[in-house]
């Protein structure tokens, strides 16, 4: 974030979450970690209706420490699945602000269509993603990202990437 901002507009939000998506597809995990607010939560629930994640089982329910460990695992070379990780390409679309903007704390929802390629096979992961963005120190930080896979209650395959 080069320019100092006080509130987040629709365009700011879309630009920010596009950057976040680009970091993940290009495995720029160091930049990705830096996009988060210190108390940010990254959640991938199983229950499609879940709003509160602490008391139920999720695919991921990460605070800052867990996110750092997750990135270490994907990059350290110690994980045999991550060593041969998928290539991913995600498209974000159908953006909708869930709060009035501009504001210093906003939620935006979009559709995410992710294609995963590994060992000659494509898989797709379709999800509704909700981001909560907050202004901190003149820049935008990710306070919460919730990825709701449309097939979250079905059997999935091992993932060597982040949704």
């Amino acid at each position: 974030m080069t320019r100092t901002i006080e509130t987040i507009t629709f365009e700011d939000a879309v630009r920010f979450i596009s950057l976040e998506a680009d970091c993940l597809d290009h495995r720029d995990y160091a930049t990705w970690l830096g996009l988060w607010a210190k108390d940010g939560i990254y959640a991938i629930p199983i229950d499609p209706d879940a709003e509160d994640f602490a008391d139920r089982l999720n695919y991921a329910y990460d605070d800052a420490a867990m996110r750092r460990m997750r990135v270490s695992r994907l990059t350290s070379g110690e994980s045999m699945s991550a060593r041969d990780a998928s290539n991913t390409l995600r498209s974000l679309s159908r953006f909708r602000m869930l709060d009035d903007e501009p504001a210093s704390d906003v939620r935006i929802r979009c559709a995410q269509h992710l294609v995963d390629y590994r060992r000659g096979a494509y898989r797709t992961y379709a999800a509704n993603v909700t981001y909560r963005l907050r202004v901190e120190d003149g820049g935008i930080r990710l306070a919460e990202k919730v990825v709701r896979l449309i097939n979250s209650t079905d059997a999935l395959a091992g993932m060597s990437f982040l949704l």
């Binding site: 991938i44 602490a54 008391d55 139920r56 089982l57 999720n58 695919y59 991921a60 329910y61 867990m66 460990m69 997750r70 695992r73 994980s79 045999m80 699945s81 991550a82 041969d84 999935l156 395959a157 091992g158 993932m159 060597s160 949704l163």
Partner: peptide
Amino acid sequence: NRARLRLHEHFQGPMGFGTPDDAE
């Protein structure tokens, strides 16, 4: 129970720190 859920998420599942390597 919350602690048990977090331990489960840490190792198990398609995004756990253990299961994807087992599956591989």
